[in-house]
Design a protein around this nucleic acid. Structure first.
Length: 786
RNA sequence: GCCGGGGUGGUGGAAUGGUUUACACGAUGGACUUAAAAUCCAUUGGGCGCAAGCCCAUGUGGGUUCGACUCCCACUCCCGGCACCA
């Protein structure tokens, strides 16, 4: 007799599906569409580990299910291929990032194919491919021209020894990952996108989304809306005003000093000469202990008096102005009115520096206080967000070049206002001298370099490519230089799902009709680590595109599910350095792709983190073996109990897939196989259909048909068959289980009561006692209260 | 500190007001085998008992209910996120 050996047929079916284009989506169809998407991976040099497929198999199960339910399914895959590791690898080996990336992609793709994932590979995209990033650049120009991009001097992590900027991941405990030198900050002109313009929409539209509450909550906190008032404080003996934001304008009478962030722009101007050196020292100290260090520190407040005073507009009292690093430069206006009687932090500061703590009787609520201050002309109702604008440039090589040039001549023209209306875009006027490339010059391709080392000035390695940098201005034909910073990895992933609808289009981001048909994404699956950055940035770009009428939807992902991380058997995160990575290739080699798929789904709830247990695979392998063995033992007719169980299983598996409860769907199929006795070929085929999304290879192999199992419809279950004729009823006395009896289904209360009163067990518990109450639930339970 | 999610056998987990522990792993015993692997059968929360059976158990304490893993209150521990946010 034949034996279950997945190697005999898994590869065969993978090739056949590919040859038959079995899973390619049709751009027009009478069927309803369903766009199901995985977050695309960064193709690292390490290949896939068993954590990756969890999400991929989950979406694959749903994709197959929806196809069999009659949907036209778009299920694509691609590569988020720009990023730092490829660049670092190039520095070490001299190998072009494009070459190492290509190699990695090949490996990832082979691995994915060996799992039998039903991707439509004809739509594969790669963010580092000029055909793709042409449109990332085009989108950036759209934002730029709209005035949503501006330049600002911002600090980056800087290693004084390597003379290079560092990504946050390269800073370990405040030190450079490579050389161990203390990391400092360096100010660099950066491109910044005005995501804050969309803060309110991004916040409100969360309500429309079918996303996990947890993710919505995280975005809400990230956006961090608070309502209050802006209040101006006049600096004493000066024209200067200091603007603060407060959520408690009603406490203004208790404001006994002001505190500015050390980075506040007015600090230099207001500081008195005798305080100047002390203030400068404090500013310098703050600069060098930002971020990591600042957070690690005890919350002991420090600060310095500037020597200046401001006037409290409510009571005209003069109050001192301090600087302190507990006031953050990027929240509100980087300045607060300190109310020590009402705020713990202000209280601690006031105590330490012996400042006035004034208790106040609140005679106004927030609303009234704001109105009163507005009337006096010193305050305005205001809303503040924690959300900050998005720093969009990177001093890196391996990313999309920013398609802008800097032209001195155009800058002068704009500054002298010597230009015609419409000559410059909004973005060009906002950033004098910066000129957008014209659309026909896109893509602006990344030049190949010989050396990828940092420049030592903090500029991108691209600055070394003189031929590339020095060009003529597309506006005036004068001398100009290119922007040498590149875009962050998020740029390509902000909009990639759009490109799947029309991946080879040279004229447009995607055909309008195709976008209208396929978008938005119906079902999106990925790691919760992208809760704020990727998912928020993407929502932002989509809202801009919607406002520009390029697309007709304003949220990219209707439904989102997050996957739980797969941990190594030791409960730790899998990583090369820990040496605990489990490679799916080994699992497939030993047990086959179907077992890998099934185990990934069976381990536990889809959205919960879980440790890998290679032993556990045996269970699903044995199950598949039993399915195979049953196929070798088909009967003429299915016995009635098996028939009933099959119908129940069809119902349960369908419902479980729709709720992403893959583990219980599999458990239910196991129960069926464990107790199936006689089964006809027709019924066995129905079972194969519900198994096929999970174990496509074995299901196809056993299906015995001239067309693919996936061309067939999902089986229907017979409602009548699901009801058992005899039903076990739970018998309780005073709510405690004392017996169970079998009755005809739908037996009435009286019938059941008569039956159980004859039972010895029940009599024993009732004895002489009187039955006070009977609780009866049809087909389930009877409870006598005595 | 704040927000979110959790605590069920030796292990992963199932059950969202009605038989706690489905399904699976592991373990123990048995069959087959020269032997091992594989496979098959049985047992597998704890306690008492020869047995029928009874009692106890879903982090802790209380409450609601005929009946609570499930709902409510308080506490506790674990995991994830955010955090000097004015």
């Amino acid at each position: 007799m034949a034996e279950y050996n997945p190697k005999d047929f898994e590869l065969k079916w993978q090739k056949k599906w590919e040859k038959d284009k079995e899973f390619e989506a049709k751009d027009s169809s009478k069927k309803p569409k369903f766009f199901i998407l995985d977050m695309f991976p960064y193709p690292s040099g390490d290949g896939l580990h068993v954590g990756h497929p969890r999400g991929y198999v989950g979406t694959d199960v749903i994709a197959h299910y929806m196809r069999m339910k009659g949907y036209n399914v778009l299920h694509p895959m691609g590569w988020d291929a720009f990023g730092l590791p490829a660049e670092n690898y190039a520095i070490k080996t001299g190998i072009q990032p494009s070459i190492s990336t290509e190699k990695n992609i090949k490996r990832f793709k082979e691995q994915m194919k060996s799992i039998g994932l039903s991707y439509d590979w004809s739509r594969e995209i790669n963010t580092s491919d000029p055909v793709y990033y042409k449109w990332t650049q085009w989108l950036f120009l759209l934002l730029f021209k709209k005035g949503l991009a501006y330049q600002e001097e911002l600090p980056i992590n800087w290693c004084p020894s390597c003379k290079t900027g560092l990504a946050n991941e390269e800073v370990v405990a405040g030190k450079c990952e490579r050389c161990g030198t203390e990391v400092t900050k360096k100010n660099i002109k950066q491109w910044v996108l005005k995501i804050t313009d969309y803060a309110e929409k991004l916040l409100n539209d969360l309500d429309k989304l079918d996303w996990p509450e947890k993710i919505k909550e995280m975005q809400k906190n990230w956006i961090g809306k608070s309502e209050g008032a802006d209040i101006d404080f006049q600096v004493k003996d000066s024209d200067l005003k200091i603007k603060v934001f407060t959520t408690r304008p009603d406490t203004i009478f208790g404001a006994t000093f002001l505190v500015l962030a050390p980075e506040h722009k007015l600090v230099g101007e207001i500081t008195t000469p005798e305080k100047s050196s002390e203030v400068k020292k404090y500013q310098e100290a703050t600069k060098n202990k930002m971020d990591v260090e600042r957070q690690l520190e005890e919350k002991e407040k420090t600060g310095v008096f500037t020597g200046a005073y401001a006037v409290n507009p409510a009571n005209r009292k003069e109050i001192p102005i301090y600087i302190a690093d507990y006031v953050l430069p990027y929240y509100g206006y980087g300045a607060i009115m300190a109310v020590p009687a009402h705020d713990e932090r202000d209280f601690a500061f006031a105590k330490k520096y012996k400042l006035l703590i004034e208790k106040i009787e609140l005679d106004k609520n927030i609303e009234q206080a704001t109105k009163w201050l507005e009337k006096m002309g010193c305050a305005k109702k205001a809303i503040n967000y924690k959300l900050r604008d998005w720093v969009f440039s990177r001093q890196r090589y391996w990313g999309e070049p920013i398609p802008l040039v800097f032209c001195e001549k155009c800058k002068e023209k704009i500054e002298k206002e010597d230009y015609k209306k419409g000559e410059f875009s909004k973005g060009e006027l906002l950033n004098p001298g910066w000129i957008a490339l014209s659309e026909k010059d896109l893509p602006l391709t990344l030049p190949k370099l010989e050396k990828y080392e940092p420049t030592g000035t903090g500029e991108s390695p691209l600055a070394q490519a003189k031929d590339w940098v020095e060009i003529t201005c597309p506006k005036c034909g004068g001398k100009a230089v290119r922007e040498t910073n590149t875009m962050p990895q998020w740029a390509g992933s902000c909009w990639y799902f759009i490109r799947y609808t029309d991946p080879n289009n040279q004229e447009e981001i995607s055909d309008k009709k195709l976008m209208k048909y396929w978008l938005p994404v119906d079902f999106y699956v990925g790691g919760a680590e992208h809760a704020v950055l990727h998912l928020l940035y993407s929502r932002f770009w989509i809202k801009v595109l919607y406002d520009e009428k390029i697309i007709n939807f304003d949220e990219p992902f209707k439904k989102l599910i997050t996957i739980g991380l797969i941990l190594a058997p030791d409960g730790q995160k899998m990583s090369k350095s820990r040496g605990n990575v489990i490679n799916p290739d080994d699992i497939i080699e030993k047990y086959g792709a179907d077992s890998l798929r099934l185990y990934e789904m069976f381990m536990g709830p889809f959205d919960q983190p879980i440790s890998w247990d290679t032993q556990g695979i045996l269970g699903v392998y044995r199950f598949l073996e039993k399915v195979f063995n049953l196929s070798q033992n088909i009967s003429e007719k299915t016995d009635s109990e098996t028939k009933r169980l099959l119908n129940k299983t069809i119902k349960k598996v369908g419902e479980d897939i729709e709720n992403q409860k893959f583990n219980t769907a599999i458990a239910c199929m196991m129960e069926f196989i464990n107790s199936a006795e006689k089964i006809s070929l027709e019924d066995f085929k129905d079972f194969l259909k519900i198994l096929s999304p999970f174990a496509p290879h074995l299901s196809e192999e056993l299906y015995q048909s001239d067309k693919s199992i996936f061309k067939d419809n999902w089986p229907k279950y017979d409602k009548k068959l699901i009801i058992d004729s005899k039903i076990k009823i739970i018998v309780q006395i005073n709510g405690r289980l004392r017996d169970t009896i079998e009755v005809e289904s739908d037996s009435s209360e009286a019938e059941v009561k008569d039956m159980i009163l004859q039972s010895e067990k029940v009599q024993k518990w009732i004895q002489e006692k009187k039955i006070k109450k009977v609780i009866f639930i049809k087909n389930k339970l009877i409870n006598l209260v005595v």
